[in-house]
Design a protein around this nucleic acid. Structure first.
Lengths: 184, 184
DNA sequence: GCTATGTTTGACAACACTGTCAAACATGCG
DNA sequence: CGCATGTTTGACAGTGTTGTCAAACATAGC
């Protein structure tokens, strides 16, 4: 194998993720990605085909990390602590950075379509299953499946409100209100 | 007053709203608005200054209509019926059209910043007050203010899920789950 | 009807992004 | 070493957007 890739693909994915996360999928251009990764635009086209394909690669890794973090937070035996830790994890994820970078999947859900939208749907489906598995073991006033979907919906709502109010404490309060309502 | 505006401003606002709602604030260009309204691009620049200023004018009317519809839905004496009607109104608003046009304020919240973001924040603040006034009269397991914020957050979550799943019935189910949880 | 006033129109230059490509390049392998 | 292979680079044409402007235009008021 001669003619070998000159740049570090893993580092490039991480930097590209940062660009997408900061600017949003739609507002990110190939020149932005070239500047953010330090890889020439032509090389990115050559290696991945374009913005959408590169995003899918990057988003796949993001998805795995996000779900792993969510699963870890939900592992607590106590349902209330588990859900609180879950929301703390989600809120920390979207309020990191200055200014806070927001929620990549929510922004993408709103901005994108086609295969990119499919990737977001898959993430939300997986998240719902993760929550379902945990909520089936809790004593709820509503069906576990419906509760799981409600929690997923709330994570999206929090992501939008983060954009509007830029107030992590408020997001935690609203999340706590849902947890209280769900667990009585 | 000679030199009078040749186009119907009200009709132009309505058509521009349709363009913004369909394409989203960011993806809408001045040529899009010119095509959608039938008013020359130069005239729009002359009359309003640019995309952002035109959006603010259009969004002001949208806001008034939206809040009026929400208030009407919340007017029911029975808290559960009132909240259900409220969510039905919101879901109907975002699932209208083929393909459904989504939630203008949520898309804008995620896509925009500056004065446009301020306008979205004002809408959400007003919506929160509207809900607070109604929820203060209901028997809830949580503080009315927190409940109002939770409901606002849920409307945003539903708007995002509408983009991802395109399934109005599912949105109504998730909304019903929240209503059940809140009112016990 | 004339005039002053504000509007409409089409065109302009400037800028940014896309996708592609040929030539220059780097490197693993024989 | 030298070659074959895949990569990198800078440049290109095509497309679309922005904001502006002078000239043409329409109309209210005199």
């Amino acid at each position: 194998m001669a003619g070998v890739r000159q740049f570090d693909e893993q580092a490039t994915f991480e930097r590209a993720l940062d660009v997408f996360w900061t600017k949003g999928f739609r507002a990110t251009s190939m020149p932005d990605l070239a500047a953010g990764t330090g890889v020439q635009r032509g090389s990115l086209y050559h290696a991945y085909g374009g913005k959408e394909q590169l995003f899918l690669k990057v988003f796949e890794q993001f998805t795995a990390d996000f779900l792993a973090g969510a699963a870890e937070a939900l592992a607590d035996d106590n349902p209330k602590r588990a859900l609180t830790a879950f929301f703390d994890f989600v809120i920390a994820s979207i309020t990191t950075g200055t200014p806070s970078r927001g929620c990549l999947s929510t922004r993408t859900a709103v901005e994108a379509d086609g295969v990119v939208e499919d990737a977001v749907r898959k993430l939300l489906d997986d998240l719902e299953e993760l929550l379902l598995a945990r909520l089936e073991q809790a004593d709820l006033a509503v069906e576990p499946r419906e509760a799981a979907r409600l929690v997923v919906a709330m994570t999206r709502g929090l992501a939008v409100l983060e954009r509007v109010y830029d107030d992590p404490a408020r997001l935690r309060e609203t999340a706590a209100t849902l947890v209280t309502s769900l667990l009585r």
